[in-house]
Amino acid sequence: MSGKTFFVDLSRCTACRGCQIACKQWKQLPAEQTKNTGSHQNPPDMSFVTLKVVRMKEVGSRDDFKWLFLPDQCRHCVEPPCKDAADSIVKDAITQDKATGAVVFTEKTKGLPFDVVRGACPYDIPRQDPATKVMSKCDMCNDRVTAGMLPACVKTCPTGAMNFGERDEMLAMAKKRFEALKQTNPKAVLVDWEQVRVVFLTEHEPRLYHATLMADADSAGPVTRFAALDAVLGLRNQARG
């Protein structure tokens, strides 16, 4: 399988949020009017104008305390369930770039039922503009990538947490790093690497970072097309539970 892939090594992420800001800058997306809600995570969640958010989670206490960071974004599934769900409703509302594998939401997404599209996503990524009903998410900076540049978030990452390139090279890098990390972190996971083009390597159990960092094994996910169809057909609520 060819195309592009991100490898995100969470053991190197310092939550500097350079990626979050770079995403907004490249896309020229407006800032949200935020408040401090008792957390540094801001905006509190992804939105139509916030395609990438660095999630921060505090786990445990005192000597086994961990502060976990997750630069959350669309995983660009190899076989995207959102597209499967959309294709039968509005053709080409969600496209997939043949060369890069980027999954792209078009203006036509305004004709799709939002709950179906969001529900189809095992990672809870799609968001909708309440005014226009157009849906949005990360598009892999496909404009940059097609022009030979790195996605804005990868370009700005100072620590080597965000990596991007040809899929086989990224998977090789990911597996090598995973093998090394397992020596010190036996619960490290290379999350859903066969199914997605944004491969996260965790230091700890994925659920500790965020409920939808990893697709639920027994729910809607990119695992099979059947599972994706199940989601469209109504199992999504349990999946999100």
């Binding site: 949020r17 800001i21 407006p30 800032a31 935020t34 408040k35 401090n36 957390s39 801001n42």
Partner: peptide
């Protein structure tokens, strides 16, 4: 710079759960 202000919009004070309990303060107060 709006994107930066969006990420850290307001003056905050960080404190331990013990101190917060002592003063009856909750996160976001």
């Amino acid at each position: 710079t709006p994107w930066l202000l969006e990420a850290e919009p307001q003056m905050f004070v960080e404190m331990s759960p013990e101190l917060a309990a002592l003063r009856g303060i909750k996160g976001g107060d």
